[in-house]
Simulated assay, not measured.
Amino acid sequence: MLDKVYTALVHYPVLGRDGRIITTAVTNLDIHDIARSSRTYNVKKYYVVTHLPAQQDIVKKVLGYWTEGFGKGYNPNRSDALSIVELKSYVEDVIAEIEKNERQRPIIMFTSARIRPNTITYEEGRHIILNDPRPVLLLFGTGWGMPKELEEMCDYSLEPVRGKSDFNHLSVRAAVAIILDRLIGEAVLEK
């Protein structure tokens, strides 16, 4: 059901290069570009997940400028895209809000550059989105991937964008756009 798709960009907990759990930095580009992709594909809400107060302040300033400040009048399209962004401290907060608003737990899919035991294709993911009445939360990680405890919260892992490439290190902004197009795309929007 296309009116119940959510995206979330997770900055904590994520893995660092050495495999330890870290917090990654929020970037202005990720806030803007993922909001624009999410809004283009009619995603209900895009969550930025970070628990650090300084990082939360950055998100609040960006959103305030474009949804309430000078930017709202200067670029209404940007304001529209950023109007679906919400800041949360933890993934559990995102899930709790979706459960409260939708009255059921979302199906949670995460993205990975590797095949996992619960990996599904984009076609299978699209089928779930179109045919299952439950909401769907798409988790996108930063850093070097998601820790095991976050993966275990998820129902499915989506197949890698480029599973057979010798170089597989897309920016998260590009990955979100590609994945939303593969899961939702024009054909799905026309149904």
Rank of each mutant, 00 (worst) to 15 (best):
D3F: 07
L9M: 07
V14F: 05
L15A: 02
R17Y: 14
R20Y: 12
T24D: 11
A25P: 13
T27H: 06
N28C: 03
N28A: 08
L29V: 01
I31V: 12
H32A: 01
H32T: 02
A35Q: 00
S38T: 02
S38C: 03
S38F: 02
R39K: 12
T40W: 01
Y41E: 04
Y41P: 02
K44V: 13
K45C: 11
Y47W: 08
T50W: 06
T50H: 10
H51N: 12
L52V: 15
Q55L: 15
Q55H: 14
Q55M: 14
Q56D: 09
D57P: 12
I58C: 10
V59F: 07
K60G: 10
L63A: 03
G64N: 15
W66D: 02
G71M: 04
G71K: 03
G71I: 05
G71T: 07
K72N: 14
N77S: 14
R78W: 02
D80Q: 12
D80R: 13
L82D: 01
S83P: 09
S83D: 09
V85R: 00
E86C: 04
K88T: 03
S89P: 08
E92M: 06
E92H: 08
D93T: 07
D93S: 10
A96R: 09
E97S: 12
E97F: 06
E99V: 07
K100R: 15
K100W: 09
N101Q: 13
R103W: 05
P106R: 01
I108N: 00
I108Y: 00
M109G: 01
T111K: 00
S112P: 04
S112W: 00
R114Y: 07
I115L: 10
R116V: 00
N118E: 09
T119A: 02
T119V: 03
G125E: 06
R126M: 06
H127D: 13
H127Y: 09
D132K: 07
P133A: 09
R134L: 03
V136L: 05
F140L: 02
G141K: 03
G143R: 02
M146P: 13
E149Y: 11
L150Q: 12
L150D: 08
E151V: 13
D155W: 06
L158K: 06
E159W: 08
E159C: 13
P160V: 04
R162Q: 15
G163N: 15
S165T: 11
F167R: 14
S171F: 02
A174W: 00
A174I: 00
V176P: 01
V176M: 00
I178N: 00
I179M: 04
I179H: 04
I179P: 04
D181L: 05
R182N: 09
R182P: 08
L183C: 04
I184E: 05
I184H: 04
I184W: 05
G185A: 09
V188I: 13
V188M: 11
L189V: 11
L189H: 11
E190H: 15
K191M: 12
K191T: 14
K191V: 14
